[in-house]
Amino acid sequence: MTKRLGRSTVAFGNPPCIRANACVAGKKEGEGPLGNSFDIVNNDTSFGEKSWEKAESRMQELVLAKALSKAALSPPDVDMIFAGDLLNQCIGSAFALKDAEIPYFGLYGACSTMAEGLILASAAVDGGFANRAAAMTSSHFCSAERQYRMPLEYGSQRTPTAQWTVTGAGCAIVTAEDLGGAYVTHACVGQIVDAGVKDAANMGAAMAPAAYRTITDILDQSGSAPEDFDLIVTGDLGFFGGELLREMFELDGVELLNHTDCGEMIFDRESQDVHAGGSGCGCSASVFCGEILNSMRAGRLARVLFAGTGALMSPVSTNQGSSIPCIAHAVIVSSTR
């Protein structure tokens, strides 16, 4: 039986198995350090579509199809899908799934969407509401740039703390069946933390306190210590936010030696000119549903704490001078049940 371990953490009674994971990425991501971990890399980033929004939906169609084929399933075998993206009204997900005929929940958790979807899919499976449930998300540099910042060809200089929205998508299918590989054992539902940061070009600093809060909560409530994990991975604080998080734990006398961030992993800091690293739903989704889960399946990682972090602002709230409310959702994924 699922147990509530505390205010925000649960331990799943029958930890759902991640039956398949797949990821898709754009050209720049394909040229990065994780290039080989993506199932599909599109070299012109338009994914054969006429608009960037359609390209983003196409990525989700591709990643879902890939995850289904890896799981040897077809759409009717999936009882529920939890999907979201960065675009207004989540059109990336809705348009990708309009012909899929899969019961659908649309999510908005910004860059935390992969973790949020995974928690909900796992809860649906462990609660018996679905035999198989999927979590999926995407982001596209070009569609995010025009919505949150400036037109693509507008000439400007980025600040050193600005992060680069990843063009990518990830999908994980969880199931009640015991098929090995990776299991979602615990989940921690994040609370919104607003540390007063107003600079939308410094999202790592805005989100780091939310990540700190959720990681502290899940460690405390599940009775774990950082050393119990082969990897603690956040997504996507980037280089600056990642450093801040590690320093915050240091102030508590805790060294997060095994911590890294999806935004630090996906790009090469020096050669790819991405300033503070990657961001966007597709960053943590394509890293978690690629490199990390693949490493677990290959036996290189046994226990991973994955905390997706999201900055919940909009261009409107930024223009109105509001600070950025942030969230982090965490799951513990283990290679044993």
């Binding site: 693509l152 060809e153 507008y154 000439g155 400007s156």
Partner: peptide, 29 residues
């Protein structure tokens, strides 16, 4: 233009060239 602007910064944004870019880029977008 955006690749030059990344290096040139205000040098290319402040003259009339910046104004032209700020009209053409959203028109394309």
């Amino acid at each position: 233009y955006d690749k030059i602007a990344k290096v040139a910064g205000a040098g290319i944004v402040v003259p009339i060239t910046g104004f032209a870019n700020s009209v053409v880029s959203p028109a394309m977008e």
